[in-house]
């Protein structure tokens, strides 16, 4: 069938990708660059968060400029649980996802009544409200945020403070969720989301409850971003209001568009390229943002389908 919607799983490239991610910390340790294991963990986490936003923007046509508030909800949930003495990742991470889901359900229920630019702005408005709530609550540390005295644990005698162990925990979560995301996109709900992106009026006219489907997609993306926030809290052992700042939402959006909105690995690619470019530029110059800005501008003007699209153009 000539479907371009089904996201296939090419066994060999997938295997190579996952295998190299598994081997990465071993190699980095061997060449004595263990610092990059932490960077790799950060890239993986942002890859997951950006992919959750790609589900909204690229597949659902819901251009949200408030995604960072779900990340923040998850991160603060994990931090608060650790402070309350609940130190198990098996509890803290699902709780982070749940926090993201609940917040997304509330924001989505209101925001999804608007369309287009108004949707962009109302998601931004809610995220700003969440930001000011966090800044003002002394229990959440106000402007300073919270420090996590330790990372959440996994049991089985594993030490989450060993960078390699933490990396593998993150890798496991991210691979699992990306597999789930692919499954979802190929399933009826994923098809329905993409069809709504193409033509919401027609979807309603052939009998789909458009609002409820979009809300479901919004909640799934919020839960995933919340989980990503939980992972970030553990990675940094610190949470602060800057996680929820609107520029964070903007950066996540940049990752998605840079990588390729509506392409399965677009979020992953965008997160990796942006974070690695920041790292690279910061070694050479203090004016990192100038380089990144110029690259972004070039991408938009000359490779509008994002890097994933550029890949295809070149490969052709």
């Amino acid at each position: 069938m000539a479907s371009t919607l089904h996201i296939g799983l090419r066994p060999l490239p997938t295997l190579v990708l996952v295998a190299s991610l598994v081997l990465l910390p071993v190699v980095l340790t061997a060449v004595d660059q263990p610092f990059y294991i932490v960077l790799a963990s950060r890239v993986l986490i942002y890859a997951l968060i950006a992919s959750s936003l790609n589900l909204l923007i690229g597949y659902g046509g819901m251009v949200s400029l408030g995604h960072a508030c779900f990340v923040g909800a998850g991160a603060y949930t994990t931090a608060v649980l650790v402070h309350a003495g609940i130190g198990s990742a098996w509890l803290a991470w699902p709780a982070a996802a749940l926090a993201g889901a609940v917040l997304a359900a509330m924001i989505g229920a209101v925001s999804l009544r608007t369309r287009g630019v108004y949707f962009i702005m109302i998601t931004l408005a809610f995220a700003q409200m969440a930001y000011y709530v966090v800044v003002s609550l002394r229990a959440l540390g106000g402007d300073d945020g919270l420090v996590l005295p330790r990372r959440t644990g996994y049991g089985f005698g594993l030490d989450p403070h060993a960078d390699m162990t933490f990396y593998y925990a993150v890798l496991g979560v991210v691979v699992l969720l990306m597999a789930g995301l692919r499954r979802l996109l190929n399933a009826p709900l994923g098809r329905a989301l993409q069809a709504i992106r193409d033509n919401d009026v027609r979807m309603e006219a052939i009998g789909f409850p458009v609002f409820r489907i979009q809300l479901a997609g919004f909640v799934i993306a919020g839960a995933t971003a919340g989980l990503g926030g939980g992972l970030l809290a553990d990675l940094n052992q610190q949470v602060s209001p800057s996680l929820l700042h609107w520029t964070q939402s903007g950066t996540l959006m940049v990752m998605v568009i840079l990588g390729g909105a509506g392409r399965f690995l677009g979020g992953v690619l965008g997160a990796a390229v942006l974070l690695l470019a920041q790292e690279l530029f910061s070694d050479v110059t203090t004016h990192t943002a100038l380089g990144i800005g110029l690259v972004l501008l070039a991408v938009v003007l000359f490779a509008p389908a994002g890097l994933a699209g550029l890949w295809r153009q070149v490969a052709r």
Partner: peptide
């Protein structure tokens, strides 16, 4: 709109740095 957001976001980064 997505492309416009991305490009003008890039302009902000460039202008701030300049």
């Amino acid at each position: 709109h997505l492309h416009q957001v991305l490009a003008t976001f890039a302009l902000i980064l460039i202008a701030n740095e300049l």
